[in-house]
Design a protein around this nucleic acid. Structure first.
Length: 209
DNA sequence: CGGAAGATCCACT
DNA sequence: GTGGATCTTCCGA
């Protein structure tokens, strides 16, 4: 049972909130030219499907872009935003549910030098600079739309065990960049490991106190 | 077929 | 803190 072995299918075939919370502390493993790059996930967001106005599958949309969001838990949904950046989601739930978890930030575990090179950083990255933000995370692991629809259970891109974050250390808050999603904009579907310095943008208020 | 917006990032002031 | 990049996707006419 290696540290970096893939998670089982059953892990992904649960609801988005449950999987999102459980993804914190897990490893995102990328094999590239025989090299292994590993991030420990510290920030994710749940997207609930047809009833979630912030989701790409809102209202049951089935456009070509979101085809992979209906493949069922354990697949990747990779899309391009602003014509520039790729973002990766872990598809969750049953086939056809259109639910996913966006991976927003991670801490480097293995392969720091290669990630820095992929990110085009000349100096050692400051906190959050290497893989803090969905676009940066993808760039650091050379994830692009060619991986849209890929299986995430084993192989060149997969999720692995790691150590789940203690629920008391998980902070929830509104998702980033979805202000125009009506009431869904306020839903606390962003999950952060409050002990990490690598979290992107607005740090949610601490739940404690 | 046109237009507007987008689950973002970076350089610059 | 602000604005520009850059282009795909989607919806309405």
């Amino acid at each position: 049972m290696g540290r970096f072995e893939g998670l089982p299918l059953a892990f992904f075939r649960r609801g988005p909130e449950e999987v999102a919370a459980d993804l914190l502390g897990r490893y995102l493993v990328r094999l590239l030219d025989g090299e292994r790059l590993v991030l420990r996930l510290v920030e994710v967001e749940a997207y609930l499907g047809a009833g979630d106005r912030a989701a790409h599958t809102w209202g049951g949309r089935r456009t070509p872009r979101v085809r992979s969001m209906y493949l069922g838990g354990g697949h990747a949904y990779v899309y391009r935003i602003y014509g520039l950046h790729d973002c990766i989601n872990v598809v969750v739930g049953e086939v056809d549910s259109g639910q996913a978890v966006l991976l927003r930030a991670g801490e480097v575990v293995e392969g720091a030098a290669r990630m820095r090179e992929l990110r085009g950083l000349k100096r050692p990255p400051r906190a959050g600079e290497l893989a803090g933000g969905p676009g940066r995370l993808c760039r650091a692991l050379a994830i692009d739309r060619r991986l849209d629809g890929a299986r995430l259970l084993a192989g060149e891109l997969r999720l692995a065990r790691g150590e789940p974050v203690d629920p008391r250390r998980v902070v929830r808050g509104p998702r980033v960049g979805v202000e125009s999603a009506g009431e869904a904009a306020a839903w606390p579907l962003r999950f952060v490991d409050a002990g990490s310095r690598e979290v992107s943008r607005p740090r949610p208020l601490s739940a404690s106190k």
